[in-house]
Design a protein around this nucleic acid. Sequence first.
DNA 1: AATTTCAGTATACACTCGTATACTGAAACG
DNA 2: CGTTTCAGTATACGAGTGTATACTGAAATT
Lengths: 220, 220
Amino acid sequence: MVDRGEQKQKTRHLLISSALKLSAEKGFASLSLREVAKAAGITPAAFYRHFHDIDELGLALIDEVGLGLRQLLREARRSIDPNRSVVRSSVEAFISYITENSNLFRVLQGERQGASTAFRRALFTELGRFIEEVTEDLEKESIRKNQPLLDVGLAAEAIVAVTFTVGAEALDLPKHKRPELSERIVKEIKMILRGALAMPETTRASKISTPKKIKGKASR
Amino acid sequence: MVDRGEQKQKTRHLLISSALKLSAEKGFASLSLREVAKAAGITPAAFYRHFHDIDELGLALIDEVGLGLRQLLREARRSIDPNRSVVRSSVEAFISYITENSNLFRVLQGERQGASTAFRRALFTELGRFIEEVTEDLEKESIRKNQPLLDVGLAAEAIVAVTFTVGAEALDLPKHKRPELSERIVKEIKMILRGALAMPETTRASKISTPKKIKGKASR
DNA sequence: AATTTCAGTATACACTCGTATACTGAAACG
DNA sequence: CGTTTCAGTATACGAGTGTATACTGAAATT
């Protein structure tokens, strides 16, 4: 005698994870209800006990993706090694996460321009949340280091854009080439952060005259 | 009496543009040979006179996309108004281009993570070319203004990533909100450029990286 | 003018698709 | 208990799929 709701939940999740796997291989848009059902080991008709549509499953899938993303960020925060650059350890956490959850990430990236507007909107919302969290992190860091940043939100947006775009390449790369990719991302992020630094006096003009020494703290 | 090869070329192009239109609506991955053929006004079987596969048509489509991109860049260069920022006019050219050729752009973005490896590889090649052209532009500007830049290639990569990622949002935005989007992109690009500036002497000091444990404040 | 070439048509095939309908059998419930 | 609920099955349908095969008719070649 097995619990009923529990069993249903289990099947539901099986459907989602099957869809995730298949989506990563051939794109969510080209999935058929039947093949998802088959992959989950149930009859096509039984599918309707869980979702009344493939698109409804899609939305559930996006929730899953969003959850994964937020976990990733938390993980990255947690694993910060004070001896290493925050940026570097975050990026490395990100890369290792997306290569381990490549299905999740492929769907996230692939469906960004895909299918329905509702679909896209849901994804954008998730991404927006992600950017927001990065923004908060940046603000905290900025205060902690006493290095004021301008347009933190924009910086976060740019950082996320770069990380996701360039990071996506990792999925097609042999493992040994990934560190090089990480390095590239790290450099680009630091570039953005440098550009976001509010520099006393000289901020507005992009031509740098002679920036004054930054704050008293010796940086070494 | 009509020229034969010419007529064939015409039909071929009709197939491609039909596929483009349909792809933008529902994603290339979910296209069927039959509906593309029907949209182009020919019989399914006649499709095989032009491509022996839907994926082969896909590759042709990517060529088209790449061509469009390079045209865009050339256009952006041409329309530079010395009274306005190069960045701003380029970004605006880009936004107006992708909203006018939204089909092309949707496919480009959507298929980046899509389908086959061959497909993706072809797209990356096109994007690589694009980044390369931006790199060259940056180098020229850098010399013209006598403002040396560091890691120009990386800066170009970041700029393209940001422009494409954020720019993609324009497609779902009502026209009157697009200038605001452009503004955001412009700011982020300038941020990157500022970060790429090789600053005399003080460069190191303002870097945000934390190569070693910072001995800073006794914050505990 | 006779012949060849070939883009496109017509038809037919075996599949897969989404979905509707009637069912089964065990967990949940009164 | 017996009854109800309901996740999952079995089957069947019409519609769309990719592709093979034989064809047509006009442009191109000889």
